[in-house]
Design a protein around this nucleic acid. Structure first.
Lengths: 142, 142
DNA sequence: ATAAAAATATGATATTTATCATATAAAAAG
DNA sequence: CTTTTTATATGATAAATATCATATTTTTAT
């Protein structure tokens, strides 16, 4: 459902939300090592996230990636949208171009409400919300 | 969510369910042409479906692919399972190996009930059920 | 200023998925 | 029994995704 890039992005962002701030920054290698994903690939993904203002970075000595308070207000769906796009959530599951509510494919009526529910859940919660739940021990990313 | 192979398989099976029987068989090219998918790729998929007894075939003159009444009793989920496997429906959406109900990832609680609902819907209905709905004009595959 | 640390930009390789092509085997018709 | 039709088996090519590597630029500490 989600590409590797997207899952890595989400996990890295949540990791940074939990551990970083303006004073405490992380290199791709530290993050990759801690959440157990390939570092060079993550590095590329982090750059893309920086370009799109989902995470913050600082070059040079004592630089690294971190999350600002502003960054923590984003939703997970906006990250997925930035990396993968929302095609997989919106296009017909059987690949039909003429599939819609009034002319549904066999899977349309089963899938559409579930997709919408998922999109809503991923849109409503912010990174900060997920971080709170992580601190409470309710959810985990590694 | 579904691979091209799976979507082609589902569409071809439903097409055959609607149009074929022991007396009326179809070549991959006829099917591919009618539902607008690449024929050589479909041919391979049809062979796999035949091997796994989801569709029937007959070689030689006047041969081709068709659906027996028995074939129509299968569920769509069993076809997806045969082609893609059910990994995408069961594995953690963030790729965590230690993700489960008592140790959930951030997406687990949102996604799992939706996935289960979808699996149930695709398990309960048979090809025959979908075919009835197609004949009633409620759903379409092309 | 200079050197070191770290992001940035870019490109190379590998793996997976999708697509296309062809030679073989089986069945039926004449 | 020979020809034709069609499935079967297998492999070749192409495209997309994922992974790895490196040279460059920016920043900061000394």
């Amino acid at each position: 459902m989600l590409s590797k890039s997207s899952t890595y992005a989400i996990r890295a962002v949540l990791y940074l939300s939990l551990n970083s701030n303006e004073e405490k920054k992380f290199s791709p290698w530290q993050i990759a090592d801690d959440i157990d994903i390939p570092a060079p690939f993550l590095a590329k993904t982090l750059q893309e996230l920086t370009r799109r203002n989902f995470i913050s970075s600082k070059k040079g000595r004592n630089g690294g990636f971190y999350l600002s308070d502003d960054n923590r207000l984003n939703s997970l769906i906006s990250i997925v949208n930035a990396i993968d796009g929302l095609g997989k959530f919106k296009e017909c599951a059987l690949g039909l171009s003429e599939c819609n509510g009034s002319n549904p494919c066999p899977l349309h009526n089963a899938i559409t409400p579930l997709r919408n529910k998922l999109i809503n859940e991923l849109s409503d919660k912010t990174i900060a919300d997920y971080t709170r739940e992580m601190k409470e021990g309710k959810i985990h990313v590694f």
